[in-house]
Computed example of a mutant assay.
Amino acid sequence: MSRRVLIRLCGSGDPAKLHEAFAEVGWDKPVALFERYVQEHAAMSRHFLLAEVDGAVAGYVTLVWRSAYPPFAEDGIPEVSDLNVLPRFRRSGIAASLLDHIEQVAGQRSPVLGLGVGLYVDYGAAQRIYVRRGYLPDGRGLMYANQPVPTGETVPLDDDATLMFTKQIDRHS
C-alpha cells in the first residue's frame, strides 16, 4: 500500500497539530515554538516546512536565513535548524525529502548550506544522514551554544554541544 507524502509550507493552523503529534511520543515541543516559527516564516527570517504522510504529521524542518553561529552569519550561510521526524516515520525517506526541499530553497540564495548536529546517541541518525548527503564538518571543532570550546575545557554533553557542517549546494536546483 502506497503512502502519500506531502511536504508543504507550515501555516497558522499547524502549530497545534505539530505540538500534539510530538507530545504523543513524549517530546516537549510547545505550541509557542511552532507559532514563533510561523511568525518568523511570515517575516522571511525562517523557512518552515511540514511533512505529512496520508494527512498525519510526520515531521518538519526549518531553515534560518541568518544563522546564530558567527562563522555562518559572517559568510551569509543559511542554516538548517530544527529537523525532526516522528519515530514511526523514520527510515522511510521523510528526513531526506525534507532536506531535499530545504536544500532547494536555500540554493535560491546561497551556494552553501550549514547545519549543526548534536554529539550524543540521540543524534546518531542525523549524523549519518548528513554525512551521506555530503555535509562535511566546517573544521572549527566542537561548539557549545555556537561558541568554540577551548582545548581542555569541559562542557555538558547536551543539545548545545554541536559539530557544525556545511555542504555545497546547487544554486538552481
Rank of each mutant, 00 (worst) to 15 (best):
S2P: 15
R3G: 11
R4K: 15
I7M: 05
I7Q: 05
R8L: 03
R8T: 06
C10S: 15
C10Y: 09
G13S: 09
G13I: 00
D14Q: 08
P15F: 04
P15K: 09
A16I: 11
A16K: 14
E24M: 11
V25W: 09
W27H: 06
D28S: 11
D28L: 07
P30E: 14
V31L: 10
A32T: 03
L33Q: 14
F34E: 10
F34P: 03
E35N: 00
E35A: 09
Q39H: 10
E40A: 07
E40M: 12
H41Q: 14
A42W: 06
A42Y: 07
A42F: 03
A43Y: 00
S45A: 05
R46G: 12
R46T: 14
F48D: 14
L50K: 02
E52M: 06
E52N: 09
D54W: 14
G55M: 04
G55R: 09
A56E: 15
A58F: 07
A58P: 05
A58G: 11
V64W: 00
W65C: 05
Y69K: 13
Y69R: 12
P70S: 14
P71A: 13
P71S: 07
F72P: 06
F72T: 04
A73D: 14
D75R: 15
D75G: 04
D75P: 00
G76Y: 05
G76E: 06
V80E: 00
S81E: 13
L83K: 01
L83S: 01
L83C: 05
N84C: 07
V85M: 10
V85G: 12
P87V: 11
R88H: 04
R88G: 01
F89T: 08
R90Y: 07
R91G: 12
S92K: 15
S92V: 00
G93Q: 12
I94N: 02
A95K: 02
A96T: 11
A96P: 00
A96M: 04
S97Y: 00
S97H: 13
L98D: 12
L99C: 04
I102W: 01
E103G: 09
G107H: 02
Q108Y: 04
R109M: 12
R109I: 09
R109N: 14
S110G: 03
S110H: 00
P111V: 05
V112M: 05
G114L: 06
L115P: 01
L115V: 04
G116P: 10
G116D: 07
V117F: 00
V117K: 01
G118C: 08
G118H: 04
L119T: 12
Y120H: 15
D122W: 00
Y123Q: 03
A125C: 03
R128Y: 02
R132W: 11
R132S: 15
R132H: 15
R133W: 11
R133V: 07
Y135H: 06
Y135E: 09
L136S: 12
P137M: 13
D138C: 08
R140Q: 11
N146E: 15
N146P: 01
N146L: 05
P148G: 01
V149R: 10
P150W: 02
G152T: 03
E153I: 00
T154E: 15
V155N: 09
P156H: 05
P156L: 12
L157Q: 13
D158I: 08
D159M: 08
L163F: 11
L163W: 08
M164F: 01
D170A: 04
S173P: 01
